[in-house]
Computed example of a mutant assay.
Amino acid sequence: MNMTITKAAVAWFREEWGCKEGDSIRFFVRYGGVSTVQDSFSMGIAKELPNEIGISTVEDGITFYMEKDELWYMNGKGLIVDYRPETDEVDFKLD
């Protein structure tokens, strides 16, 4: 299992969320919403310090992660986080 954050997504987090080197971005599972990953669940995003990291990557000095107890969401696959300019949102896909 791995996590990939595209350069476009990193730039979006820097611009829209004001992220800088040393910040942490958590991707978490929430019930409801629309997802291309799991039916009836979607990804949430929070700027917060980790508790128990299950998977992470550091891009441009920013730590992106998911907590250990939420890795079930990925079904053993990798996560790709990209930016979609047409919707001005980040997009989540399994790899």
Rank of each mutant, 00 (worst) to 15 (best):
G18P: 02
K7R: 06
G18V: 11
L94W: 03
F92P: 01
G18Y: 08
V90T: 15
D23R: 03
I62N: 06
M43H: 09
G76L: 09
V34N: 06
S24V: 03
W17C: 12
E67F: 08
E89P: 00
V10T: 12
I5H: 01
T36Q: 10
K93P: 00
S56I: 02
N51H: 14
E21F: 00
E59V: 14
T6S: 10
D91Y: 11
F64K: 05
T36F: 08
K47Q: 15
I5D: 02
S56D: 15
G76S: 07
A9S: 08
K93M: 11
W17R: 13
G54L: 11
G78W: 02
R84D: 14
C19M: 15
G32C: 08
W17P: 04
K7Y: 01
D69H: 09
M66F: 05
T87I: 12
T57G: 03
K47E: 09
D82M: 04
W72N: 06
T87L: 11
I62F: 07
I53V: 14
F28P: 00
I55K: 06
F64S: 06
K20A: 15
M66G: 01
G76E: 08
A11S: 08
F13L: 14
M74Q: 05
F28H: 05
G54I: 10
E67M: 06
G78E: 10
C19L: 14
F28W: 09
D39F: 10
K77Y: 08
V10M: 12
W12P: 00
K7T: 12
F27T: 09
C19W: 01
F41V: 07
W12S: 04
K77R: 13
G44R: 06
K77M: 14
G22D: 07
M43N: 05
V34T: 12
D88E: 14
I55H: 00
K20D: 10
R84W: 10
D60Y: 10
A8P: 00
M74C: 09
F92M: 13
F27V: 06
P50H: 10
I62K: 05
I53D: 03
W12N: 04
N2H: 08
I25S: 05
V81R: 02
